[in-house]
């Protein structure tokens, strides 16, 4: 319990730092970007009025506190391009992106665990080298390239979905059918990475004394693998998968563009090109929160799996 409390306060501290950095970094250029929008109409009076309207004349801590509390109330300022509240603009997009990253994560877990159990049998045999080469090859495939091939083959040729025409989250089944393709594109290189890591962990465990003891006592190798080794490999795997979340989010940002998924990543790219900084800083903080929160969740799960980890950290 104490450990959970410590982890959660660390999460809050990190997020406080991240949001402060994002706000400080963008607030300076945010004002000048707004002024630039006035273009040739930028008389000193108009600039002053705009600064007043955007609240740029208030002291920094007040503006920051105001913006931060906006994450609770949903009022995150106004987008410079869309003349719309940032909170309102992003609400549905947050859900889409989180769903996409969740689906990729599920795919990675569902594929890499069985695959690594198969691969671990080949260790030290000729097929092992083939696996290593194939594994490196899969890791080298950029998600946006896979995405390009998938959207062409399943979208344009087979017409299983229409790239760029996301049906919206209210039609859940259609939305899931659409998102499975970007999720696969994101997952392929990550599955390769996870299989590689899991294989190493499993092999290290298989070389331990308790495995030799269990086998010499007459247990069959598969049973030992299932009953003991997997359990011991669980904690490092959870930690590794949590780090994977950062990579998945990176994939989401790019792959959304390939398939035309209306999510945070696409919005981020558009907003950077438009210099729409209120939107950019909100998206950065939301994505960072998602990554840091999933890391904290993994720490808490690991403390459950192996209480020694919580003790070692104190």
């Amino acid at each position: 319990m104490k450990y959970a409390f410590r982890r959660l306060s660390a999460l809050l501290a990190t997020m406080f730092l991240v949001s402060l950095c994002a706000f400080a970094a963008f607030s300076g250029i945010s004002g000048s970007a707004a002024e630039a929008r006035l273009g040739t109409q930028a008389t000193p009076e108009r600039v002053a009025a705009l600064r007043e309207q955007l609240g740029l004349n208030r002291p920094f801590p007040v503006r920051y506190a105001d913006w931060l509390s906006g994450f609770a109330t949903g009022d995150l300022g106004e987008s410079l391009t869309y003349r719309q509240g940032v909170g309102e603009l992003l609400r549905e997009k947050v859900a889409v992106s989180l769903l996409l990253s969740g689906m990729s994560f599920a795919l990675i877990v569902l594929c890499s665990v069985p695959l690594s159990l198969v691969v671990v049998r080949f260790a030290g045999r000729p097929l092992d080298a083939a696996h290593t080469v194939f594994n490196q090859f899969c890791m080298a495939i950029p998600p946006f390239f896979t995405g390009l091939l998938l959207s062409w083959f399943f979208g344009v040729t087979l017409r299983w979905f229409t790239p760029g025409a996301f049906p919206g989250l209210s039609r859940t089944a259609d939305a899931l059918r659409f998102l499975i393709f970007p999720a696969v594109a994101i997952a392929v290189p990550r599955i390769a990475m996870t299989v590689r890591m899991l294989r190493g962990t499993l092999l290290r465990e298989l070389n331990r004394d308790y495995v030799r003891t269990a086998i010499s006592r007459g247990s069959d190798r598969d049973a030992v693998l299932r009953r003991h080794v997997l359990k011991n490999a669980l904690a490092p795997t959870v930690a590794f998968l949590a780090q994977m979340m950062a990579e998945i989010v990176a994939g989401v940002i790019v792959v959304e563009q390939v398939f035309g998924v209306p999510g945070l990543g696409r919005m981020l790219v558009v907003s950077i090109s438009n210099r729409d900084y209120p939107v950019v800083q909100a998206i950065v903080v939301i994505l960072a929160f998602w990554v840091v929160a999933s890391n904290t969740a993994a720490d808490l799960i690991n403390a459950r799996i192996d209480p020694r980890l919580a003790l070692a950290d104190s």
């Binding site: 970094a25 900084y277 840091v292």
Partner: peptide, 21 residues
């Protein structure tokens, strides 16, 4: 620890939007 938790592309996008793409 805090920084490596972030997707590298996200950080790079932030820096480049500050410097000008």
């Amino acid at each position: 620890d805090a920084l490596t938790a972030f997707p590298s592309i996200l950080l790079a996008l932030v820096v480049i939007s500050l410097l000008g793409p």
